[in-house]
Each structure stands twice: as structure tokens, then as C-alpha cells.
């Protein structure tokens, strides 16, 4: 009984504070990228604006305009205040606001990520239930082979094969990826492949762990069928953990998105960020990273709060 118990409200607030701290730390990291990067930002911005040989005065003026004067704390404060208002600076390549560039491409990435999470979760659920219903028999083995394959082969290779060998060879003219819902299936399936495999493995293990608990034995001794025990007694216990795993899996999806977007030339922010790295366009990279980190923190926060709400033991134990 040594642990102190928290009320649900306090636990929720605590988790909220944790998310805020993570977000803040993420922003420090993203801001510090500027210090890591070689070269003078003011010069880069001027060059982007077609001033090829800026004078010292021009550079100085630009530096002041970009908020690059003063101590690190002041610079960070200004940057953070700007970021909070949605001002992510201007692209060093196009000279346009990063916010507009990202905003234009964000819907395509959101579509891709949403479709991938949906596809992946459904596939993982089906695969895991199939495997856990008959552990050690052929559906289990098949599911294991399938998920292992999906885990060891990089998702983008599958994308390359699908795109170049199957679709492009098919040679009928059609739009493969334009960022809209109609074409989201292939890239989303590619993106979801590895995460779905990982999720199904975790869910299968949790289902079988739940099968080993006393109450499932008792239910079986009473005559519950495998399917009954699986859906009524094992799945509810494994589901909360599954939710958490899918939530953290969003990180893998976010990480995989740039690659898949590049392979399929999907017009999202991931591919844009990769182009930004290649052209050393740091504000674009910063904006993208900040956005992805914020999305990830928000998703894991909501997943944790949902898990606490779903599991009555967590709520009741706190009384």
C-alpha cells in the first residue's frame, strides 16, 4: 500500500502537465536545430530573396528582422511566441511563409495518416483474433509469417514494388497519388504494413496472456467456447493495451510518412520536409518537426486519457 493514490482529476491534470512539458521540450529541441545548423540564417534568407551578395548592413538588418539578436533565452522566447501564433518563419528557398507551405500540404498527410491508422488497426485486430483463437495451429502460423514478413521488409520497398512493378507496368493511364481520398488506399496500406504487424503481435500476446488467467479457465470449465472466451473475457482486457500501442504506433506512422510520401509522390508535409532537408531549408524542417511532435503528443495524451476512462479498475482503485 506504499503508493500514494491520485484522484482521477488529479491524475488527468498531471498527465496534461506532462504533455505540456514534453511539448515545451520538443520546442526547445526544434529551436536548437538552428544553432546546430552551419551557416548564417540571415544570409540564407537574403539569398532566397534573390539578394546574392548582401552587404553587411543588409545582413544585420535581416538578422534583426528575423529576431536573431540578443541572448539565447530572448531569441527562444521570441521564436516560441511566433510559433504559438503560427508564425514558423519563411522558407529559405522560396521565401514564402512556412505556415502557408505546410498548411497547403497538411490535409493530404492527415488523410494518409488517418487511413493508415484505420487500415492498420482493423488488420491487426483481425490477424490477432485469428491467431489467438488457435494458438500453434495454421492460422496462427500464417499470421506470424505474414507479420514477420511485414516487419522485416522496409515498407517503402513494398511501396516501390507495388508502384513500379505492378502499377506502372500495368500501363493503364490513371492517377496513382494526388493527395485525395480516392487514391489514398495504396500509400496508406504501404504505410500501415509494419505498424499493423507490430500491433497484431502485441495484441495476440496480450490475448493469450489473458487466456492464462484464472477467470478464463473458470469460464472454459463452465463451457464457454474459445470464441466466447476470446471476445468476452480476453479482448476487453487486451483492448486498453491495444489502444495504447496503436497510440504510440502513430509515432511510427509519422516517421514512415516522409518515406512513403516520397515513394508515391504524395503531396504531403513529409515529402515536403524531406525536400527541405535536401535543400537545407531549415525553417521548413523546424515547422514540420514541431507539427509532428505536437500531433504525436496530442494523440498519446488522448489515448492515455481514454485508456484511464475505459479501464474501470483504474478509476475504482483510486477511491
Amino acid at each position: 500500500m506504499g503508493r500514494r493514490l491520485l484522484s482521477p482529476a488529479r491524475a488527468g491534470l498531471r498527465r496534461l502537465g506532462q504533455a505540456a512539458a514534453t511539448l515545451l521540450a520538443g520546442s526547445v529541441l526544434v529551436w536548437a536545430l538552428l544553432a546546430l545548423a552551419p551557416g548564417d540564417p540571415a544570409r540564407r534568407v537574403l539569398e532566397a530573396g534573390n539578394v546574392t551578395n548582401p552587404t553587411a548592413a543588409q545582413v544585420e538588418a535581416k538578422r534583426a528582422e528575423l529576431g536573431l539578436t540578443g541572448g539565447p533565452a530572448r531569441r527562444y522566447g521570441r521564436w516560441l511566441a511566433g510559433a504559438a501564433r503560427g508564425d514558423l518563419g519563411v522558407s529559405w528557398v522560396t521565401g514564402r511563409p512556412v505556415r502557408d507551405e505546410l498548411g497547403r500540404r497538411l490535409p493530404a498527410t492527415l488523410r494518409l495518416a488517418a487511413a493508415a491508422v484505420g487500415l492498420g488497426a482493423v488488420a491487426a485486430l483481425a490477424l490477432a483474433l485469428l491467431a489467438a483463437a488457435a494458438p500453434g495451429r495454421w492460422p496462427d502460423t500464417a499470421a506470424r509469417v505474414l507479420s514477420t514478413g511485414a516487419l522485416v521488409v522496409p515498407g517503402f520497398v513494398v511501396g516501390l514494388v507495388v508502384l513500379h512493378v505492378v502499377v506502372l507496368r500495368g500501363a493503364d493511364l490513371r492517377v496513382i497519388a494526388d493527395g485525395r481520398w480516392a487514391t489514398v488506399l495504396l500509400p496508406a496500406a504501404t504505410l500501415a504494413l509494419a505498424p499493423a504487424a507490430a500491433w497484431s503481435r502485441v495484441l495476440r500476446a496480450d490475448l493469450l496472456r489473458a487466456a492464462g488467467s484464472g477467470h478464463v479457465d473458470v469460464a472454459r470449465a463452465r463451457g464457454a467456447s474459445t470464441w466466447w472466451a476470446l471476445t468476452r473475457h480476453q479482448l476487453p482486457h487486451a483492448l486498453v493495451q491495444f489502444l495504447t500501442v496503436v497510440g504510440t504506433g502513430v509515432a511510427a506512422l509519422l516517421g514512415g510518412a516522409p518515406v512513403v510520401e516520397t515513394v508515391y509522390t504524395w503531396p504531403g508535409i513529409g515529402a515536403y520536409a524531406v525536400a527541405g532537408i535536401a535543400s537545407r531549408d531549415l525553417p521548413v524542417v523546424q515547422g514540420y518537426a514541431l507539427l509532428a511532435i505536437a500531433a504525436y503528443v496530442a494523440v498519446s495524451l488522448s489515448v492515455d486519457l481514454a485508456a484511464a476512462a475505459l479501464d474501470p479498475r483504474v478509476a475504482e482503485r483510486r477511491r
Partner: peptide, 11 residues
């Protein structure tokens, strides 16, 4: 709490 691949990409 940060997504590792994104952090790596940004760095």
C-alpha cells in the same frame, strides 16, 4: 514523449 524518427529526421 517525442516520436523518435521525427526527432532523428529533424536533427
Amino acid at each position: 514523449g517525442l516520436p523518435p524518427q521525427i526527432t532523428a529526421l529533424a536533427i
